[in-house]
Nucleic acid binder design. Structure first.
Length: 166
DNA sequence: TCAGTTATTCATG
DNA sequence: CATGAATAACTGA
């Protein structure tokens, strides 16, 4: 699908965003070791006009979300890489208001498959766009953290920013 | 197709 | 609190 990558500077580090012709397709957390602001080429040189706009929206949304506030506008998300079930899960995740949390079981119920909680967890893990698709707002039944693609530290940080404790 | 894996959950002891 | 079964969907071969 020919992704084009660009770097996004945030207060928490430098993310990498991958765009297709349809929209934002991937979002990667900053690498653990080296976050070097100076050496990041790819300021969006290979992006077309639409993608540049999406990049700006993504950067703004990221910073707003990292601050724990609801985002006003989001770039189009290209989720065509996922299966239809995964796309349903990701849509359900986006419907969770900022500051609230759901359990894996509740997500499964809202999809009409109450016994698919395990599969929901797997779909969350396969989510290519963390943070923007708020997979961090999904907790286990007993309030357990579960897991997170970029590491549990991120999940805790994001939840803490929204006022939720662990 | 099928065995192996998963960011779950619930019932037991 | 530790353990194990049940369950739905993905991945790779």
């Amino acid at each position: 699908m020919n992704l084009t990558f660009a770097s996004i500077e945030t207060m928490a580090g430098i993310f990498r965003a991958g765009f297709t012709a349809a929209g934002l397709a991937r979002l990667e957390f900053p690498p653990p070791g080296a976050t070097r602001p100076g050496t990041t080429e790819q300021g969006g040189a290979d992006l077309n006009a639409s993608q540049r706009r999406w990049l700006r929206q993504t950067r703004q949304a990221l910073n707003v979300l990292l601050a724990g506030r609801p985002v006003k506008e989001l770039p189009p998300l290209d989720v065509t890489a996922g299966t239809s079930f995964q796309q349903s899960v990701w849509r359900a995740l986006q419907s969770i208001p900022a500051g609230e949390t759901r359990t894996y079981g509740e997500i499964a119920c809202s999809l009409g498959r109450p016994r698919a909680m395990r599969a929901v967890g797997q779909a969350c893990g396969a989510n290519p766009i963390p943070v923007l698709v708020p997979c961090h707002r999904v907790l286990g039944a007993g309030g357990a953290l579960g897991g997170f693609s970029g590491g549990l530290e991120w999940k805790r940080r994001l939840l803490a920013g929204e006022g939720r404790a662990v």
